[in-house]
Design a protein around this nucleic acid. Structure first.
Length: 396
DNA sequence: GTTGAGCGTT
């Protein structure tokens, strides 16, 4: 059996991890030793550069077909906290403040599928490897004190929360899932959509798309008809939308104002014969595909469903979907088309998050009959676009 | 003492 030497960071003491018979290393094997890790990289001896290890379907592939993993010492890749580099200094302080308010807020997370035997102490102990645990509780039957098999955790850092949401968890011998609780609703999630006021009639969808694409990928543009001097622009990344709010921008010589696309529930309902379907409950984060009618201009790659992260972030979306990113046309590459690279760039963490959700490592789990975590009947198939609600107008 | 999709007596 081949072993792969892996350390958490370059220079650390490596641990030898067993590779599979086909030479690949299961991401789940990696994550069992390095919770929260999402991939591997190594230092290339010749070029001195760091190279990433290919990752697909929950498996990591050796750099060389012939010599396998070789004598390299690999080190872990973790989902990055969303950081931007060069363009950070271009940003004004209000946008920064807004991001901190919206991005770095932790919420209670629900842990489903806990073994009956798990205690609040062991729950806390497990999650402390991800970061500071502010709260860990098990829901119990009041009379018997028996665990109901789920609980809640709260982390002190958003990064820890992100890492936890991006993985499944083997807790006291059972695979559990961690999600943002439904009870949180859509309340304080970060919208992807902005309101663009002071538009003139000659600013069309293409103009808006072209202009705003330089800040990040635009997934939708909506201009009410007849002309009403405003429009809506939806971004793939809610942070990009947030960072633009409050700003004035000049498009075709016109100063437009960007602000929050405040929900206008009642007044917009059934306006002009359109019906507004609101995403509620579990479908948060997935307003998906806009029907190609009306004034929505889908992002060019028509014919496929597009997935945007209307609420929360990519990772919580991933978590909500069992870690699978098999939705159609999920695009992780950030700023499309514009110059300048965008405000946020391509830092969606952990695109290898489609990890581990295969039969192979589910079979290794649990002490129950079929050995699978709740909600995962072997495969996590919740997100394949087909069951996304179709949101026709999406006024938020 | 059993059980296995869900959503929190504050």
């Amino acid at each position: 059996m081949d072993f792969v030497q892996v350390s958490e960071e370059e220079g650390d003491e490596p641990i030898e991890l067993p590779a599979e018979e086909d030479g690949t290393l299961l991401l789940s094997t990696l994550q069992a030793q390095f919770p929260g890790s999402c991939g591997l990289k190594y230092r290339n001896m010749d070029t001195k550069a760091v190279r990433g290890v290919r990752s697909n379907e929950g498996r990591l592939f050796p750099p060389s077909v012939d010599s396998g993993w070789g004598e390299y010492i690999y080190f872990c890749v973790f989902p990055k906290e969303n950081k931007r580099k060069s363009d950070d200094n271009l940003e004004n302080s209000t946008a920064k403040t807004k991001r901190i308010e919206t991005r770095l807020r932790c919420t209670d997370l629900i842990v489903l599928g806990l073994p009956w035997k798990t205690t609040e102490d062991s729950l806390r102990e497990y999650f402390e490897s991800f970061g500071e645990v502010l709260m860990a509780q098990i829901k119990k039957d009041v009379k018997s004190g028996q665990s109901k098999g789920f609980g809640f955790v709260r982390f002190g850092s958003y990064e820890a929360q992100m890492r936890v949401l991006s993985n499944r968890h083997l807790i006291d011998g059972r695979w559990c899932e961690v999600k943002v609780p439904n009870s949180k609703g859509m309340g304080h999630q970060v919208p992807c959509k902005v309101f663009v006021g002071r538009c003139t009639e000659d600013i069309n969808s293409d103009d808006l798309r072209e202009y705003f694409s330089k800040f990040g990928e635009v997934t939708d543009v909506f201009i009410p008809r007849p002309f009403r001097a405003f429009s809506f622009v939806t971004f793939l990344d809610p942070d990009v939308a947030q960072s633009l709010c409050g700003e004035d921008h000049i498009i075709k010589g016109v100063s437009v104002h960007v602000s929050n696309a405040a929900p206008k529930a009642e007044q917009n309902r059934n306006h002009q014969g359109q019906s507004y379907n609101y995403n509620t409950g579990n479908s948060f984060g997935m307003h998906s595909y806009h029907h190609p009618q009306g004034n929505h201009i889908n992002s060019g790659r028509s014919g496929h469903h597009r997935v945007t992260f209307q609420g929360g972030n990519f990772l919580s979306w991933m978590a909500q979907n069992g870690g699978h990113s098999n939705a159609n046309n999920l695009n992780n590459c950030g700023g499309g088309g514009g110059g300048g690279g965008g405000r946020k760039g391509s830092n969606n963490p952990n695109n290898s998050g489609s990890s581990g959700m295969n039969k192979v490592d589910n079979s290794a789990c649990n002490d129950q009959q079929n050995g699978c975590a709740p909600g995962n009947s072997g495969w996590s198939n919740q997100s394949s676009g087909s069951q996304n609600s179709v949101d026709k107008s999406n006024f938020l």
